[in-house]
């Protein structure tokens, strides 16, 4: 039975192509219009900046493989479709050394390049690595709770809940623990997220390039109130930061162990609170809750190079 030759641009095909174009165009428009909202692609700190560069580099490098795959897939599907009897047909051809070597080799080379980039960037972006700067670093100790974040400023003698402030262009050394199920500390505008775990300290160094208010959240399910575990990360000028610290120093809210135990009880929708830090060893005490009496901390001697009490 002879089939009539169908025109290339049949009505269904046209509709399909139009729909595809509309979708792609909308996505593009969306990305353009929402640029600022796309935190990972709109870095406000040095770490996030480097990570964005990595993303762009890796995507472009991968295109060397992805684009030919798509082109060949559709080109071959079209050219060698059953109806096209004019195309060459070699049913027994089942291999070609040269071609096969090529596509073992090209991805190998790409991965080799990417491996070098990975090795270098992973060391460069190691959260344990302290950021270099002329400005002295600010230490902030973070405690993931259910379902809020406690920030302890040991050198300033203050503590806050669900809001962390730091000056711009200043490296911030976060020391992170938890008194809650495993959580993850993430400020996408500034970069790298890190797990917060009971009885251990994870370390992270971030720096904000500009003044601004950024969103922070938890990414590791930690119980019923997990979705509400968001905090504000506010980068201010050095002057405003100092004023803010001074203002808290005059407040009546004191954070000691008793107040902490009350604070640590599970609750959702925790409002922002500022405290005077009345227990300078609070962070160590919280971490110590989960460690045994001997100094051997299992997590220290485990496979990971975490640090125990510091």
């Amino acid at each position: 039975m002879k089939k009539s030759v169908k025109p290339f641009f049949s009505p269904w095909r046209v509709i399909f192509l139009v729909v595809c174009v509309v979708i792609i165009a909308s996505l593009g428009a969306f990305l353009l219009l929402n640029g600022k909202n796309i935190a990972v692609l709109n870095p406000q700190g040095i770490i996030a900046s480097k990570q964005k560069d990595l993303i762009i580099f890796t995507v472009l490098l991968s295109m060397i493989v992805v684009v030919p795959v798509f082109i060949m897939l559709f080109a071959f599907a079209w050219k060698y479709r059953e109806g096209n009897t004019k195309a060459k047909y070699t049913p027994e051809a089942d291999g070609n050394r040269l071609i096969e070597i090529t596509w073992w080799a090209i991805p190998l080379i790409i991965i080799a390049i990417l491996s070098v980039v990975t090795w270098v960037s992973t060391h460069d972006l190691d959260p344990y690595k302290k950021l270099k700067s002329d400005t002295p670093a600010l230490t902030i100790r973070v405690v993931a709770l259910q379902w809020k974040w406690l920030f302890i400023y040991p050198d300033q003698g203050i503590a806050t809940v669900n809001e962390v402030r730091f000056p711009e262009d200043t490296p911030v050394n976060f020391e992170i623990t938890a008194d809650a199920p495993m959580s993850a500390f993430w400020i996408p505008n500034l970069g790298t997220q890190t797990y917060a775990m009971n009885g251990m300290t994870s370390k992270l160094s971030l720096e904000a390039d500009n003044v601004g208010e950024y969103r922070g959240s938890n990414t590791n399910i930690s119980g019923e109130g997990y979705a509400k575990m968001n905090f504000k990360a506010i980068a201010t000028s050095r002057h405003e930061f100092d004023m803010w610290v001074k203002a808290i120093a005059g407040s009546n809210s004191h954070l000691d162990w008793t107040v902490y135990e009350e604070l640590a009880k599970p609750n959702k929708n925790q409002p922002v609170v500022y405290y005077m830090l009345h227990e300078p060893e609070l962070y160590a005490m919280i971490q110590h809750k989960y460690m045994d009496d001997q100094t051997t901390n299992v997590q220290q001697s485990g496979m990971m190079n975490h640090e125990g009490m510091n």
Binding site: K50, Q51, L54, L114, V117, T118, S121, T192
Partner: peptide, 8 residues
């Protein structure tokens, strides 16, 4: 697979 990217 790039740890630096995965961190985000």
């Amino acid at each position: 697979a790039v740890p630096g990217i995965d961190f985000q």
